[in-house]
Design a protein around this nucleic acid. Sequence first.
DNA 1: CAACCGTGTGACGATTCAGTGACAATTCCA
DNA 2: TGGAATTGTCACTGAATCGTCACACGGTTG
Lengths: 219, 219
Amino acid sequence: MDDEPEAVELVEFNLKQAGYAVTTAADGAEALKKARSQTPDLIILDVMLPEMDGFEICKTLRLEITTAKIPVIMLTAKAAEIDRVLGLELGADDYLTKPFSPRELLLRVKKILSRYQIEEKPKEQLRFGDLLIDLPRHIVSWKNKPIDMTATEFKLLTVLAQRSGRVQSRDQLLRDVWEYDSVIDTRTVDTHMRRLREKIGAASKHLDTVRGVGYRFVE
Amino acid sequence: MDDEPEAVELVEFNLKQAGYAVTTAADGAEALKKARSQTPDLIILDVMLPEMDGFEICKTLRLEITTAKIPVIMLTAKAAEIDRVLGLELGADDYLTKPFSPRELLLRVKKILSRYQIEEKPKEQLRFGDLLIDLPRHIVSWKNKPIDMTATEFKLLTVLAQRSGRVQSRDQLLRDVWEYDSVIDTRTVDTHMRRLREKIGAASKHLDTVRGVGYRFVE
DNA sequence: CAACCGTGTGACGATTCAGTGACAATTCCA
DNA sequence: TGGAATTGTCACTGAATCGTCACACGGTTG
């Protein structure tokens, strides 16, 4: 997320080389949008950006629940302390002054990620556009409006969403949602899918039927 | 804890100015001794030290229970990356390359301390609107009027409130409220929830039942 | 085109679940 | 020690939820 295309590419190339999945953004607005929708493990942010500067973005990221805890590394061309100060007080986790070596960047990234990985836990929230599934709160919401559903429906949706993109057979779902080696009819799954679709309304576009195979959650 | 007396003094002066209590050590052995006996909130360590170098000390600190969790900031004269790596791999929490400004040091110190403080303070009081739970006093009040309740009810309410928003299964509650791996019937939880709700009256709007899952405290 | 297969749908009885009142066992305290 | 407070269990009940069925629908296949 930088203003100089080549610099962005360089960073991207190096991070990808190192095995990280990288998404880039051309400006602040895009960066914020992607941060919200993808909730990355780490954000690298250039201070100098068109429109909204890096400080502004960092501040905004910190204010929103979904992005508040994502570590941020700030890139700055000015070595002046004041920039650093701001970066730190804004809650950035680290910073680099340009020019920096790719190796140095990788080290920072590695360090930050390892620090967070220690505390890392399985995802508590799954977000797909306007659909939010909050596991510990046991709440599903669509466009910030909570959707009431039964425990079974919640579990079914969760299992599908956690395996987003992969088709789950009815048998698979019976095992994972109903847990015991159920003596339950596989058609029961259909009924629950129907009820689930009814309840989540527009969000049911995420729930695909794969004829002859099973069901699939799509993003 | 440095090998150059003036530098130590400078750091000490600045930290004290900022209101921190500072202890210094002239060499590695002294540093270790003081770290063990005083268990400070933070250790600033120079890489270059007579006898035992900073890496050695850091490694030793990490090995001992009393000092393992104390955050360490490393100071190094060499900007070479390799040193940084070592510092990081040794588990230092941050580092500074010399020369550094006092202001920069203060920022790092502040940041590290705040990071740890956030994780460390269990709240003594929980307040949700008119409902106040005072942990050390063992008092619950609603609109400033104390509510009489039994120890079990208090614990139950506390556990739920401390995990506000997150659904707790009956089993979870049995583990956390009754503590031992209880042979108690999970339905017992229901009974206590009922009594709790009766006693706290209007405040029971905070106590949600999540059918098929458990109970949840909502704000 | 017609038979077929798999899925969506509406309805309904069966089951599960949490709230409730009662009661015995246990603990607490005077 | 004795009575009161607290605690754990149980059976009962209404309501929510669940599983199943029969049928409708729509695409696929021969």
